[in-house]
Design a protein around this nucleic acid. Structure first.
Lengths: 190, 190
DNA sequence: TTCATTCTAAAATGGTTGTTATAGAATGAT
DNA sequence: ATCATTCTATAACAACCATTTTAGAATGAA
């Protein structure tokens, strides 16, 4: 029987995600991944694959854990208005104070619309977010005829907030905007 | 007297902008800039400076010509509703069919909120856009108390559209969303 | 022990990077 | 013609890149 694996896959993947989120795919070297994960390049190549594979696994894991997890946390089984509010506001809280932004948004910009594996993952992430907004709006306005357009609008607003946050735009102004936007949504509902 | 400069600065800058827009700063090599501009690296270093300087000049020129130019074209001296509509819709038309996105948006993501010269230029560009939205909203709703929040909302929506376009998200859905959003604005105005 | 496997560390590979230096031809004014 | 300058082309540079290979130590079951 072989020697058993010592390190944990998941923590290494999370560390890789942090690196890619902060420096992008092109800006992250294997050496940086060694430092971030605590693994040697040999282990990285053995248990993940080359840099591309590492990145795709990281992005996929990010979609499942962070993107979908965030939606579940704020929207699943909660009143849609306050769910949407806390969902949008949660984008403003980055634990370390820095602004690494969202790996999904950052990858959308870095890879563009090429036929790469990355853009497929990006489209999947966007689709998850759009579906979540679609469900929330349907629940909020059962008789609204323009559900689709509203969902796309929220998706664009969501991604725009992530761009502003990443760029260092004042969080205070974004927070005010979000609260005002949700208040307006609440007003229409009433 | 020295030999006079043969090439034109501006076309070279425009070619560099196209490169940076499509491949980012990190993804653009000096060799790529030589090909794009038709200049040798010697000429590039002599008349512009190193890669950083080339990029800053490109981004500054992009802010003046494209970002500010687009605002002027659609918003200056025109009815604000249709101005905003054509401004947003103009983001969907990329001449070559590809989707290089916006150099401002792409740079915001690539450089983040560091204290680099790039992020200063990015903030300046965002400020120009926010001011333009501010003016349009003031003109549209002279008695609206939440002008600032509305301007930030439009800025976020604008940047979000640019993310979606860059990622290859269906242009048709974005167009529908924009038209619906402007129609709604028109409804409030009446 | 034996042996397949999993790790680390180091070296080597072949390529690309940004930048500087060099040499030579072209230009334009004195 | 002289001379400073502006171009092109090429070479050199040191640094870094992703990846493969090597060697050696650790592990765990047969």
């Amino acid at each position: 029987m072989p020697r058993s694996i010592e390190f944990q896959i998941e923590p290494a993947l999370v560390a890789a995600i942090e690196q890619f989120r902060h420096n992008g795919y092109g800006g992250t070297s294997i050496k940086a991944l060694e430092r971030a994960t605590g693994l040697s390049s040999g282990s990285l190549y053995n248990s993940f694959g080359d840099k591309d594979v590492i990145f795709q696994k990281a992005l996929t894991h990010y979609n499942q854990m962070v993107v979908e997890g965030r939606i579940d946390e704020h929207l699943r089984g909660k009143p849609p208005i306050e769910g949407l509010r806390s969902l949008f506001l949660s984008l403003l809280e980055e634990p370390d104070g820095g602004s690494s932004g969202c790996l999904l948004t950052n990858s959308a910009i870095e890879f563009g619309s090429g036929d790469s594996t990355a853009s497929i993952n990006v489209q999947a992430g966007f689709q998850m977010q759009e579906n979540a907004f679609l469900a929330a709006i349907k629940q909020l306005f059962p008789s609204e005829p323009h559900v689709a357009q509203n969902a796309v609008r929220m998706l664009a607003l969501y991604q725009g907030v992530l761009v502003l946050v990443r760029s260092g735009y004042p969080v205070l102004k974004v927070r005010d905007m979000i609260n005002h936007e949700i208040d307006r949504l609440e007003g229409i509902e009433k």
